[in-house]
Every structure is written in C-alpha cells, then in structure tokens.
C-alpha cells in the first residue's frame, strides 16, 4: 500500500489528528513569531540602558514604567493617540454609512462594482504617496488654499496640525470601514425590511430598530480596523503632524531608532496592547465576532 494512502487512511480514522496536522503549522508560526515577540518585548520593558555606551542592562526594574507614569508628557501623548483614534473611528463610521447603504441597497449590478472599485482605488497606491499628497494639499501654498482663495475665502492654516492628522487618518482608513459595513448591510434579508414596514414601522423606525442592530457587527468590525490602524501609526503624525502631534508610535520609534532606548520603547508599547485588548473585549460584547 502506498504511503500516502496509508496516511490518508490514518487521518480518516483519527479526525483529531487531522485537525492537529492542519493547525500545527500556523500555530507554530503564531507562537514563535507573534507570542514570542510579544513576550520578548514585555521582558525587555523591565531592562534599562546605559546612557553613554548604549548597552542594554538586563534586570528587573520598574524604572521605565515609573518614568512613564511619573511624567505627564507621556500621559498626554497616550490620551492624544487614543482620542484621535476614537475621533477617526467615529468620523469614518458616519461617512461610511450612506456610502455602504447605497452600495448594498440601491446600487444596481453595474453601479455596485463601480462603487466598489472607487472604494478600493486608493489602496492601489502607496500609503506614503497618499500621505505626501495630503501634505501638499494642506500646505500653506497648497491646493486647499488655492481653492479657498479662488472662492474668495480666507486661507486655512491646518497644515501640520492635529486637524491635518484627523483628516488624513479619516481618509486613509475609510475603505476599511466601508467594506465590512457593506458586507453586513448586504446580508440583511429584504424580507425583514418588508415585514417591518408591513407591521407599520416607518422608514426611520425600521432603520433604527432593524437595520442598525443587524449591521452592528459590521460596524464594530470596521471600527476595529480604523481604531487599531490609527492607534499604531507613527508615519502620518511624523509627516502631517505639527508641534504637539506625537503619537505613542512616535515615542516608540524615536526611542528605538533615535535614542536607542529599546526598554523604554517596549514599556510604552505595552499600553496600546492593553487598549486594544479592552477594545476587542467590548467589540465581542457588541457581537463583532458573531458572524465569523
């Protein structure tokens, strides 16, 4: 009997082995490259660095965390990061609703792929190219002020500011909100909406009581993308942010790439991890993972 036949026979007789064989490779990958990296980061957050020679001094000290908590600068940076991530998520949620709704409910077989292509189009070009494009749009002599000047309006001065970051982030992550929301809306059976209206619910009431609850998992799934992508970013603050625009990621980046203080960077990086863990727990409560 050929070996492959005996193997498949064995796996057929023992379904548990079959599952183990399938899952083992991704599981090893996950444990080695993901969990091990996180553990290494967590451990190194208790080390320190000799400031002149730059050598990492192993050991168990809470100095990094004490410095983080003792200096309000880092609290402000953390609040700014979470705050802008929340603002971007909210804005993207509001912007995505009408678009996804039209795509799911009204667009015909020709319009829908066209709209879909429009959503995906920005993702074809490089992230950096798009951020630099916004930098040029929002610059003092840029496209925005050129337009405002043409309309006879006063020039806007929002280049290199937190407003600029909010606009650019909202633009960058909008497709990641539209797609899951569209998928959720499309899955709502039309019969439910008909039943709702047959039972006397007006359009607004149907929307509020039927459509929104059913689309909620999609909305929450999209918000996980927009929130976590903003939370972890450091390039957009670097390029379009102004004074007082540093994110957690920028502090981590400058401590790793500039001041060579990896333990301190690791300590600060624990924070977004905790924020995301909390966010995912709430998302689970809201049913974001029910459709998985």
């Amino acid at each position: 009997m050929p070996a492959s036949a005996s193997l498949s026979g064995l796996l057929w007789r023992r379904p548990a082995w079959r599952v183990a064989a399938l899952i083992s490779l991704p599981a090893i990958w996950f444990v080695l490259f993901y969990l091990a990296a996180l553990a290494a980061m967590f451990v190194s957050s208790f080390h320190t660095v000799d400031e002149l020679s730059g050598q990492i001094q192993p050991g168990w000290t809470l100095d990094n965390f004490r410095q983080l908590l003792g200096d309000w600068t880092y609290g402000r940076i953390a609040l700014r990061t979470v705050g802008i991530a929340a603002a971007v998520t909210l804005t993207d949620g509001l912007l995505a609703w009408p678009f996804a709704y039209v795509m799911a409910r009204y667009a015909g077989p020709r319009l829908r792929p066209a709209l879909m292509a429009l959503v995906m189009l920005p993702l074809w070009s490089s992230y950096l190219a798009r951020v630099y494009a916004w930098r040029l749009i929002l610059a003092h002599d840029g496209a925005l002020n050129w337009l405002l000047h043409g309309l006879g309006l006063p020039a806007a001065s929002i280049g290199y500011s937190n407003w600029a970051m909010w606009i650019v982030f909202t633009y960058l992550w909008l497709p990641f909100m539209i797609l899951p929301l569209f998928a959720a809306l499309e899955r709502i059976p039309p019969s439910l909406l008909e039943a709702s209206s047959d039972l006397g619910a007006a359009g607004w009431r149907t929307f509020r009581r039927v459509i929104v609850p059913l689309a909620m998992p999609g909305l929450v799934a999209g918000s996980i993308f927009t929130f976590s992508l903003t939370l972890g970013d450091y390039i957009t603050p670097l390029l379009v942010g102004g004074p007082g625009s540093d994110f957690i990621g920028n502090v981590v980046y400058s401590n790793v790439g500039v001041s060579n203080n990896i333990p301190f960077a690791a300590a600060f990086a624990v924070l977004p991890l905790l924020v995301m863990a909390g966010y995912l727990l709430i998302a689970r409560k809201l049913g974001a993972f029910d459709a998985l």
Partner: peptide, 9 residues
C-alpha cells in the same frame, strides 16, 4: 532627551 520630549509634547 527627556526634556526635549516634554517640550514638544
């Protein structure tokens, strides 16, 4: 370095 981070916020 710490002072500079505090300055630029």
């Amino acid at each position: 370095q710490r002072a500079w981070q505090e300055i630029k916020g």
